[in-house]
Amino acid sequence: MLEHQQPFAPLIQGGDTTFVAMSDIQMTWLSGWGFLLLQSPSESALQDALMSHTGLRLPAPQTVSTRGDYALLWLTPKEWLLAAPASETESLQAALTRQMATCLAAVIDMSDALAVCELSGTRCADVLMSGCTLDLHADTFPSGRCSRTGLADIPAILWNPAREPRAVRCIVDRSHARHLRDWLADAAGCPGLPPAQ
């Protein structure tokens, strides 16, 4: 068997996945996750399959539905991203594919394609909004919200996982992980703005 590396593996040193840690902001690569990209024009069939294997409901546009270790992110009108523990992705993929066999659907393992960086701390929005046109303040980008957009000149999915503590997850293509890390570290180094809004 061959050794497997997480999408951000080349970017970590000594096993430490945190690459910026200051009093008001911290940035960490999230590990142990798998991602399945779900595409299907048959929403109800997909809903049934998801319900029976994960207990998840299809989320409304630009939101995330969560249950236990699972999270389902809305991406496009016919596309969702299922986040699950890495150890379960293979079996989930098989189970969902089996159940969706009769209708058109794609259940594609994107675990190796996506890197997830979590920013936490009070300066989240300040750092991100230096390279993103979305309004990411906590009141306009509340928990449970996810949006595909541009961040640091690359495509990204931004996801606010919880009300407290303040955090935003950035999901990007693995090929951009290094750029994102360098860019975020550089942005975090800029002095803070006076707290407002």
Binding site: P61, T133, L134, T149, G150
Partner: peptide, 11 residues
């Protein structure tokens, strides 16, 4: 129509 108001560079 799906995502609401966004800035032009996204389009």
């Amino acid at each position: 129509p799906c995502c609401g108001p966004r800035d032009e560079p996204e389009f």
